[in-house]
Structure formats: structure tokens, C-alpha cells
Simulated scan of single mutants.
Amino acid sequence: MSPEHAPGNCIQEPRTTEGTASPLGADGWTAPGGTASPGDFTLEPGEMNAETTRRVTRLASVLTTSGGVRKLLAGANRTIQPWCSRDPFGTAPDPDVKYCLHTDDSISREWVPQGITGVSDAKNDELWGDAGNIQLFASYDSWDPGRENDPLPTAGDCTEAELEADDACNQKGVRITFVQSRTNPATGSPEVKYRHVLLGWTYVNSADHVSFDGLHAAEYPIQKGVHAGGIV
């Protein structure tokens, strides 16, 4: 941006006279150690925690649940192809381990993978009980055709016509993918299976009915996805 096109508060005029530099180390760290304040590292419940717990309990009474991570992985419905040849960038060197997702996932314009973690971040033996070696990665929905030119952008939602034309218009938020390396119980062969889990939030409508929606940013002025870069 050239100075003549910059807003006035962006232009920094130099001082008439230079200030004297502070002596090196004047504000420095003088000794190692010191006692940390436990309050700096204490997690505290948010103001919505109790209400969220009530909503989740209500929702669980009317929805079927997977019964935990082990059962969720037992029903993993997609297969990863190890040592595949696909490389969307065409220039990346081969890593020590290379996986390709299920075909439609590997070419999706909607979901962009970001954060990745595994049991190694939580347990020394790197195993999640009998579920074994598990990795997780987070993805966010970055492509919403139709939202940018919504005829009523203040509503921040897709029209019926846009949804019918392309479900991608619907902002789906963030999903976590659970990945498990295991031996197929039927064939005895090694395989890598995975399953997507959409993150959601609960709400109660004006009729006091509990429901849920994808975890995303506010509807106004146009609903935008939240990122999923931090995961542990």
C-alpha cells in the first residue's frame, strides 16, 4: 500500500530526535528458576459449562450414541491406503510414512486438514487400550459456494435453491477424524481405518426443544467456518 493511499493512522512519522537505547539486559532475566503461580496453569469451568452439561444430557436421551472411542473405531467406515502414489502438490518428497484418504476425502474441496495429534501426546505406551494405535486430525469446512453472493447476506444462510444445487453451501464447521491402525479381524491383514466425527454445539429453541448444530462461527453477516489448527 502506498503512503498516499494509506489511512492517516497507518502512517508513522519518525521522531525528531532519537531516544537513548536501554542498556543491554536492563529488563533481562537475571536468574533461572523461580516459583510459578499455580493460577497461571489452572483450568476453570466456563460460565456455560453447567448449562452445556444439562443440554448434552437431554440430547443424549433422544439420540443414539456410539458408546465411546473404541466402539466408534470398531465401526470405522473408511479405509486409508498406505504408500499410495497420489500427491496433490506433485513436489513433496516421500515421507517415512505416507497415507492417502478415501478417494472422495482426498479430493474434497470442502474439508481442509489442519491439526494432528495421537495417543503419543497422552500416554507413554502410545496405545489407547485394546483400540491400539490411534491418530486424530482436525479439518475445517473452507468452501461454501453460494454464501458469498447470498441475496440476503445479513441472514448468513443458504437459500433453498443453493442447498438443492450444492450441499457444500451448508457451513458444516469442524470435524475430527479418528484413525486406527489395526489387524482386520476377518482377514488377519493389517489395515488403517478411519471415521469422521462432526463437532457440534447444543441449543434449546423457543419451544424448549433441545437440538444441535455444527460448530461454526456466527451467522452474521455471513456464516464463516472456524479453523481447526490446535488439537492435542
Score class of each variant (00 low, 15 high):
Arg109Tyr: 09
Ile116Asp: 11
Asp121Trp: 02
Thr103Tyr: 14
Arg109Ile: 10
Ser120Trp: 11
Arg109Gln: 14
Ser108Lys: 12
Gly115Ala: 11
Asp104Tyr: 15
Asn124Trp: 10
Tyr99Cys: 11
Thr103Pro: 13
Gly118Glu: 04
Ala131Arg: 05
Gln114Asn: 08
Asn124Tyr: 10
Gly132Leu: 07
Gly132Lys: 03
Gly129Val: 04
Leu127Glu: 06
Leu136Ala: 09
Cys100Gln: 09
Ser120Met: 08
Trp111Ile: 14
Pro113Met: 03
Ser108Leu: 01
Asn124Phe: 00
Gly129Pro: 05
Glu110Met: 07
Lys123Tyr: 11
Ala122Val: 04
Gly115Asp: 05
Gln114Lys: 01
Cys100Asn: 12
Gly115Ser: 13
Gln135Met: 03
Ser106Phe: 03
Thr103Ile: 12
Ala131Gly: 06
His102Leu: 01
Leu101Gln: 01
Leu136Ser: 03
Gly115Met: 07
Thr117Trp: 00
Glu126Trp: 04
Ser108Ala: 15
Ser120Leu: 13
His102Ala: 08
Ser108Glu: 05
Glu110Ala: 06
Tyr99Gln: 05
Ser108Phe: 07
Gly115Tyr: 06
Ala122Arg: 01
Asp104His: 15
Pro113Trp: 05
Gln135Pro: 02
Asp121Phe: 02
Asp125Lys: 06
Arg109Cys: 13
Cys100Glu: 09
Thr117Glu: 10
Ile116Glu: 11
Asp105Met: 12
Asn124Val: 00
Tyr99Asn: 09
Gly132Ala: 09
Trp128Gln: 05
Ala122Lys: 03
Ile116Gln: 07
Trp111Arg: 00
Glu126Ile: 04
Val112Arg: 14
Ser106Trp: 02
Ile116Tyr: 02
Gly118Asn: 11
Ile116Asn: 12
Trp128Tyr: 12
Leu136Tyr: 14
Ile116Cys: 08
Lys123Asp: 11
Gly118Gln: 07
Glu126Thr: 09
Asp105Val: 03
Ala122Tyr: 09
Ala131Tyr: 05
Gly118Tyr: 04
Asp125Gln: 15
Ser120Glu: 13
Lys123Ala: 08
Glu126Asn: 12
Val112Asp: 15
Tyr99Pro: 03
